[in-house]
Nucleic acid binder design. Structure first.
Length: 724
DNA sequence: GAGCACTGC
């Protein structure tokens, strides 16, 4: 192949090979929105008059009719009607997620058929935005004929015939109504993303149409060419292809591989900035470490380059999930003047968020991935090469608004060696929760279930063992009463077993508060290095119990301050926000904690007879705090010990810790309040992650006699039960 | 002395 330079004035560092634009691979259409969850929820509730709705719908129809899917409406609809299962491959901008469900809805109305249509999405925001858009196109308010159902927010009503929902939500519905009688059509959207939950739904649907629901119509929608896989699974179901509408993206490759990826990214960006017309640059890097490094370098050089060479001023911006929301928001604000945004992002910008204005993509070809080791019971965080599909998806981010360019920081021959598709999540995940779900559904033979992707015997055996140890399964592998309760609680099995124990130990309210905090990712933000010690000091000052007993008790203490002390009076919001800022906590995270807490209190109230848990009002009087009450602290931690007995480690004379399960050395994660505290007789941790070494995360101090009491005696009880 | 990304009646 001949090598040519994309632009003759390109400096000779980092030469790229040019490949003709294929312009394929952008998966996400307008439905992928910014981080505007809450705003969307509020916006949707504004009711419009019928005339306004109709007028608006007529306007939108003009746009709809230009969509590729709309132009092939009759062909597609006839196909969907004639076949029980259809695989629909539609590229970005084809309008498949908004139009196909409406075609079917109109068909249901015109033929006076019963039943409604469900469309699943992997993300909340997508479900909400799609329902909002489609309701507008249909000329109704959200929650009438068209609605959505996501955790904490259900806008559907008796009138709803078309429902957008997260795939987690459809699985919940499956647990409640095994045959999904309410629906005549199920559409699985974004199936190519292959999330654990999407894969599970595919398995359930196959079992349904082969069994009690042969009449159920299924449509699997996917953006990439995994068609054969879906088709084969559903008995060679027919496949339809719909073209998309997107702009071409030219690809450039390195001619020699790079050894320093951050350096390589910076060089590419600087060159690009010199030679290319204005437009923002989106750079994909594997993780926060590389991103922070790149931002620091760019901050140092961009001003100098701008002054010396009269090129646009480059504004470096980081983007990753652990970033405080306010800093994330900066990325989405348009920029004016002779400047361009240079966004350094993790995979979050690949599917979850869309940044407008991006004309150039720089792709490191790497990502970080969490891989579960069944034998070791720990998660490893690895930096690995992406798949070809993922590379196409990343490059597509440059072609959303106009033609774009993508610079791949690897050789073309190496691109061709990449796996075609990303390994499905279920193949590298802990399947304890999915297996409990199957058991709750009534699946006897887990191994021979209709798995879309078989997670492997080892994974299943470990999951079954785990569930047995938690008391969710009996000696025959059948679900116990405890298992039934666990499956109904919206937390992972280990935490739901903690909740059940807490009910028995009469400390449910305290434990719910801690579990709610644990359920929110990034509640405790990472302070900047220069603020680290200061923030830690402030947290320690506030959390006397946490200082000794660790992160779980700290969470409870922080929650109490947030919920009870700051929840009073008119200025509570601003007070809470500044308090969160001071302690480097996520205000939005705490709002989610409250939502989860209310949901858990409601579920537990229903699940456990006699436990009276109302969704308590924020700002009500707090009784005695937990800080000075060591008996109460012990009771709470012993409940956690029941669910996490496997996650314990004993303190050694050299002040290291050895895990009880395998005797391996484990370190307290530096984010833990107990990181500097070397005097715990033993510790219990919620998560065991291997990065550079084995780290315990969310760590608590455990007294040896508690271990004796809960773990050893608990095992004796389990033994008794199994021999009885 | 460290933090891929999602999600739940």
């Amino acid at each position: 192949m001949s090598t040519m330079k994309a632009k003759s004035n390109r400096p000779k560092v980092n030469p790229f090979q040019r490949r003709p634009a294929k312009g394929k691979g952008n998966v996400v259409s307008f439905n992928d929105a910014d981080d505007a969850d809450e705003d969307a929820e509020v916006r949707n509730r504004e009711l419009k008059s019928k005339d306004d709705l109709k007028l608006n719908a007529r306007k939108l129809l003009q746009v709809r009719t230009t969509l590729p899917v709309y132009q092939n409406k009759d062909v597609i609809l006839n196909h969907l009607i004639e076949n029980p299962v259809t695989i629909l491959i539609g590229e970005t901008g084809s309008g498949k997620s908004t139009q196909i469900p409406q075609f079917l809805l109109d068909h249901l109305y015109s033929t006076k058929q019963h039943g409604s249509i469900a469309v699943t999405q992997p993300r909340r925001v997508a479900a909400i935005n799609l329902a909002t858009r489609v309701a507008a196109e249909h000329g109704c308010n959200v929650g009438k004929q068209i609605g959505y159902s996501v955790r904490f927010d259900n806008t559907t009503s008796g009138k709803t015939r078309l429902k957008y929902l997260t795939d987690g939500m459809l699985l919940r519905e499956l647990m409640m109504n095994k045959k999904l009688n309410e629906y005549s059509v199920i559409i699985i959207d974004e199936a190519h993303e292959r999330t654990v939950l999407t894969d599970l739904i595919l398995g359930f649907l196959k079992a349904l149409i082969n069994g009690p629901r042969p009449d159920l119509k299924i449509i699997v929608m996917s953006a990439t060419l995994q068609a054969e896989r879906f088709s084969a699974f559903f008995n060679d179901a027919p496949v339809i292809f719909v073209e998309g509408r997107k702009f071409d993206v030219s690809q450039y490759y390195l001619t020699a591989p790079s050894d320093d990826i951050v350096d390589s990214v910076i060089r590419t960006v600087v060159q690009l900035n010199q030679g290319e017309p204005l437009g923002d640059i989106l750079c994909f890097l594997p993780g926060q470490e590389e991103i922070d490094k790149a931002v620091i370098i760019m901050e140092k050089i961009s001003g100098i380059i701008h002054r010396e060479t009269s090129v646009p001023l480059m504004i470096p911006l980081p983007l990753y999930a652990a970033l405080p929301p306010a800093k994330q928001a900066i990325v989405f604000a348009p920029i004016k003047g002779f400047k361009r945004k240079v966004i350094f992002s993790t995979n979050i910008a690949e599917t979850s968020v869309t940044v407008s204005g991006v004309k150039y993509v720089v792709d490191s070809g790497l990502r970080k991935v969490k891989v579960w080791r069944h034998q070791l019971g720990l998660a490893t965080l690895l930096t690995v090469p992406i798949s070809q599909a993922s590379a196409e998806q990343r490059s597509g981010r440059a072609g959303r608004e106009s033609e774009g360019k993508c610079y791949r920081l690897y050789c073309e021959k190496d691109f061709k060696k990449l796996p075609a598709q990303t390994e499905p999540e279920i193949a590298r995940s802990d399947v304890t929760s999915p297996v409990l779900m199957l058991k709750r559904y009534g699946v006897k033979d887990i191994v021979n279930w209709t798995w879309f992707e078989y997670p492997g015997k080892e994974a299943l055996v470990m999951a079954l063992q785990e569930l047995y140890q938690l008391g969710a399964l009996d000696d025959f592998g059948d679900i116990t009463k405890k298992g039934e309760q666990m499956a109904l609680l919206p937390v992972q099995p280990h935490l739901s077993s903690v909740l059940i124990q807490a009910n028995a130990s009469d400390c449910l309210s305290d434990v719910i508060d801690v579990v709610s905090c644990l359920s929110v990712e990034n509640l405790l933000l990472n302070p900047l290095p220069e603020q680290r010690d200061e923030v830690n000091e402030r947290r320690l000052m506030l959390c006397n119990g946490g200082k000794k007993y660790g992160d779980l008790i700290m969470m409870k203490e922080l929650f109490d301050v947030y919920f009870y002390e700051l929840g009073k009076g008119a200025s509570s919001t601003s007070e809470r926000q500044s308090w969160c800022k001071e302690l480097c906590l996520s205000y939005r995270g705490f709002k989610n904690v409250i939502k989860i807490r209310n949901q858990l209190r409601m579920y537990c109230g229903r699940l456990f007879e006699g436990s009276q848990l109302a969704a308590s009002e924020e700002g009500e009087e707090l009784g005695e705090g937990i800080s000075a009450n060591s008996e109460r602290i012990a009771r709470v931690l012993k409940c956690f010990l029941v669910g996490f007995s496997k996650n314990t480690a004993i303190g050694m004379p050299d002040r290291s810790y050895r895990t009880v399960a395998t005797g391996e050395t484990i370190s307290v994660h530096p984010s833990s309040l107990l990181f500097l505290n070397k005097s715990c007789p033993s510790i219990m941790y919620i998560e065991y992650v291997f990065t550079t070494k084995g780290y315990a995360r969310n760590v608590s101090r455990i007294e040896l006699e508690w271990l004796q009491e809960v773990v050893v005696n608990g095992n004796a009880v389990a033994k008794e039960r199994s021999t009885a």
